[in-house]
Amino acid sequence: MDSADSTAGTAPAGKSVGTCLPPGDFGVVLATLRARHGWSVREFARRANVSEGQICNLESGLRNPSPAVAAACDAAFGTGGELVELAGSGRRDARTDDVVEAGSMITGYERVLGELKGIGRSTGPRFVTASMKSITRTLTDAGQHAVGEQHADIWLLASKFAEYTGWMAQEAGNTAEALRWTNLSVRWGAQGEDETVAAYALVRKASIAQHRGDTYAAIGLADQAVRHPSANPVIRAHAARRAALSHARRGDAEACRDALEQFRSHAAEITADRPPHWGPRIENGSPHLLEASCMLSLRRFDLAAGLFATELGPAVPADSNSRARFAVRQATALAGVGCLHDACRIVDATLPVIKLIDSATVRAELARFVEEARSRRASPGQLALINASAALATG
């Protein structure tokens, strides 16, 4: 059995249906299991011998599963009859006017969001995007019928799903889709009575602008985020980080240094009782890794290489995306100081991960390594690795 299949879970109404299923109703469980297995909708539909349309309708909550379809899904996942049992105990009208067990639904979907984020960081956008979108449709449908606190809570959760869906769209290289989902997160966050998402969305837009090469726009958006009336220390720290990286890309060392100092100042203000969290956890990172990344963009390769060598072990988060991104940055710095052997060794070990996660932002880092490495004298073996990296960087 796949290790992902051993996770305990509960049915929507709090009834245990066994030890294999994640939490949620049938559609959420289906989406989560599919994401854990790394199957696209098409692949799962093939394995279950049902149509792709049926899978999408089930995951989005638009349709209830028939006993035959539930059994087919159960067989595909090898869940030993638990999906059949869940389908029988959890049938409901897909577009009811009442939000039943809204508290349980919100708690369950919050857990699912955390799990999908973990999968996205480790395997890339293609394994989670469909699940994110289908769950978002379920939440927005439920939000239209909810009242009181349930109304705000559901829309706020939909906003969180939209924000991360936008990030996955950026990772997939689709800037327009990333902006669309980011704007939806702002709209739904307002319906959830949380204005901080509007401030954080400016940081997200700054990130999108930076990755498409528009550093002037990125700096302007980061400045707007810092000055937004709903910005908290977490958001201001994110904005200062984005500004520092953008100033470095422009070659403005003094402005970069000022932004780095602002990042440290805002990060020091973060407390445990801060408002609802948006974006990566600032306190899990290292200011020195940010400084190393800035030194790399400023082409101060010796400083960057030294900082990466000191900080990479203890400071890099465990997810594959972060490890790959910082590893390639370290390799670029090493190539810049002429240590092409060490640089190629790092990239060679990282290429399988880059292929797996298929991240546009990591491929952009790989392209920077290729550009720097090609300016150095390479052996035939190193040249072959550089060429393989170039092919992967172009997608």
Results as ranks from 00 to 15, higher is better:
354 I>C: 10
60 S>W: 01
245 L>Q: 13
10 T>S: 13
281 R>I: 14
137 R>V: 04
317 P>T: 00
366 L>S: 09
89 S>R: 15
315 A>H: 09
364 A>V: 03
215 T>I: 00
201 A>G: 09
89 S>L: 15
127 F>L: 06
329 R>W: 06
12 P>E: 10
34 R>T: 04
82 E>H: 08
155 W>H: 13
172 A>K: 01
32 T>E: 14
106 I>S: 04
129 T>W: 01
116 L>H: 02
52 E>W: 00
227 R>M: 10
295 M>P: 00
369 F>S: 11
326 F>R: 01
297 S>K: 07
307 L>C: 05
8 A>N: 13
121 R>N: 09
66 S>H: 04
231 A>R: 10
22 P>D: 06
159 S>C: 03
192 G>I: 05
139 L>Y: 02
376 R>P: 11
88 G>S: 13
201 A>K: 07
41 V>G: 00
203 V>I: 06
104 S>V: 03
259 A>Y: 06
288 H>M: 07
69 V>W: 10
177 E>M: 11
179 L>Q: 14
261 E>V: 12
49 N>L: 10
164 Y>M: 05
317 P>V: 01
65 P>I: 05
58 L>W: 02
336 G>N: 07
178 A>S: 15
360 A>E: 12
320 S>Y: 01
69 V>I: 15
375 S>P: 02
160 K>R: 15
373 A>V: 04
286 S>F: 11
260 L>S: 00
183 N>Y: 13
197 V>R: 15
67 P>Y: 15
312 L>K: 09
165 T>R: 10
46 R>G: 15
233 P>G: 05
5 D>A: 15
244 A>E: 11
124 G>C: 04
270 I>A: 01
209 A>W: 07
194 D>S: 07
208 I>L: 11
178 A>L: 10
154 I>G: 04
157 L>I: 08
245 L>V: 15
369 F>I: 10
271 T>D: 09
388 A>Q: 09
251 G>H: 12
70 A>V: 05
204 R>T: 12
32 T>S: 14
188 W>R: 08
257 R>F: 08
34 R>N: 02
394 T>E: 15
250 R>P: 01
278 W>Q: 14
263 F>S: 09
207 S>G: 14
6 S>I: 04
361 T>S: 14
160 K>L: 07
193 E>A: 15
99 V>H: 03
357 I>Y: 01
360 A>W: 11
91 R>W: 06
32 T>Y: 03
289 L>P: 06
165 T>N: 00
125 P>Y: 13
72 A>R: 14
46 R>C: 09
176 A>D: 15
304 A>S: 14
141 D>T: 15
271 T>M: 09
351 L>S: 00
106 I>R: 03
89 S>D: 10
147 V>M: 07
395 G>D: 04
394 T>G: 08
114 G>D: 13
299 R>V: 08
263 F>G: 01
152 A>D: 12
331 A>H: 01
378 A>D: 08
28 V>Q: 12
170 Q>H: 12
369 F>G: 11
373 A>G: 07
139 L>W: 09
11 A>I: 00
337 V>N: 07
276 P>V: 12
308 F>H: 05
287 P>F: 06
295 M>Q: 14
304 A>V: 10
215 T>P: 02
75 A>D: 10
199 A>G: 08
184 L>C: 07
379 S>K: 07
173 G>T: 01
149 E>N: 12
226 V>T: 14
362 V>L: 06
395 G>Y: 03
61 G>E: 01
